[in-house]
């Protein structure tokens, strides 16, 4: 095994071009587990922790450009206003120690369906900026996940940043685990209201081979909200709309039975989370309140 330590982004791309099988490592929260347990023996480890720009972010008019290695802790502390859904999701990642090292770039690189960032990225709307010595491109996050633990990266490409739409309305994220902290998602759900475009977007984690949006549910809800004049009227969403939305979210799942949960439970839980988070965000929108959809007082609403 060889340990490559590029000092700059250009050096990293050159190294990746020279060694396409090199495994990038930043926070190490996935890669080191695989090495420690003898599941992976790459010829090259490509250490990205010396590349300062990967730890930086820029807030623009429409989007936040989030460096691939910005740790979850930083997102929770610094980006909760711009990226509330992602900040809540970040707060459910592993443990404080893991949140200090793990990053959205790592989640995307590993492309596990259980990655906590994915549903929030899908709901908010995001593009993944990837690059190689050949140049760079931006991949809509929906197209980034290509299979279980597979993504759209070419062999010589690295993830540089994630461009995430700034929240224009309330966002929420919920995750079911069988423990109250430090737990991998049995399934997860994210929702983002986009009052500027009068749309609602969703993201589902751990309930299909890849993270997915519940598009039929989004279409149904967008139509129902438009037809009922909900965006203007400040009305409460009717139970029948919420129920149908929840059913369609569950129908978007294609889960498996595994040691973490049954397929039937995953579908059920996604429907409950869909209904609840829709309620939280919509009530926050009605109240004209903050973007986290937190209408209950005080509390440690994540981030």
């Amino acid at each position: 095994m060889e340990f490559l330590r590029p000092a700059s982004w250009e050096e990293a791309l050159a190294a990746k071009a020279e060694h396409p099988a090199a495994v990038p490592i930043a926070g190490g929260t996935d890669v080191m587990v695989e090495i420690n347990f003898d599941r992976r023996r790459p010829d090259h480890l490509l250490d990205l922790t010396r590349i300062a720009e990967l730890y930086e972010w820029q807030t623009g008019d429409q989007t936040v450009r989030l460096g691939a290695s910005v740790p979850y802790t930083r997102i929770i502390e610094r980006l909760a206003a711009e990226l509330p859904g992602l900040a809540i999701a970040a707060h459910t990642v592993g443990s404080p120690q893991i949140r200090n090292r793990g990053s959205v770039g790592g989640n995307l690189g590993a492309a596990s369906p259980a990655g906590d960032a994915h549903p929030a990225l899908l709901a908010a709307g995001a593009e993944v900026e990837v690059a190689s010595v050949r140049g760079s491109r931006r991949i809509p996050v929906e197209e980034f996940y290509t299979g279980v633990k597979r993504n759209a990266l070419a062999d010589d490409e690295l993830i540089r940043a994630i461009h995430i739409r700034k929240a224009a309305g309330p966002q929420q994220f919920s995750k079911v685990g069988t423990r109250n902290a430090m737990v991998i998602a049995v399934c997860a759900f994210a929702i983002a209201l986009h009052p500027d475009t009068r749309t609602v977007r969703t993201g589902i984690g751990s309930a299909a081979p890849t993270p997915v949006r519940a598009r039929a549910a989004e279409d149904f809800l967008n139509a129902a909200l438009a037809e009922g004049g909900f965006w203007d009227g400040g009305r409460t969403i009717t139970p029948s709309i919420a129920r149908r939305f929840a059913e369609l979210c569950a129908a978007a799942c294609d889960p498996i039975d595994d040691v973490r949960g049954s397929a039937a439970y995953r579908r059920h839980a996604v429907s409950i989370m869909a209904r609840r988070t829709l309620g939280w965000t919509w009530e926050a929108f009605r109240a004209g309140g903050d973007t986290t959809g937190d209408t209950t007082e005080g509390g440690a609403r994540c981030a």
């Binding site: 685990g177 609840r276 440690a300």
Partner: peptide
Amino acid sequence: GSADVRELPGGLSNTSHGEG
């Protein structure tokens, strides 16, 4: 009926704000 998710079922995973 705590407002703090850390004191509710699901904890940090933010699954309930008291519902259910």
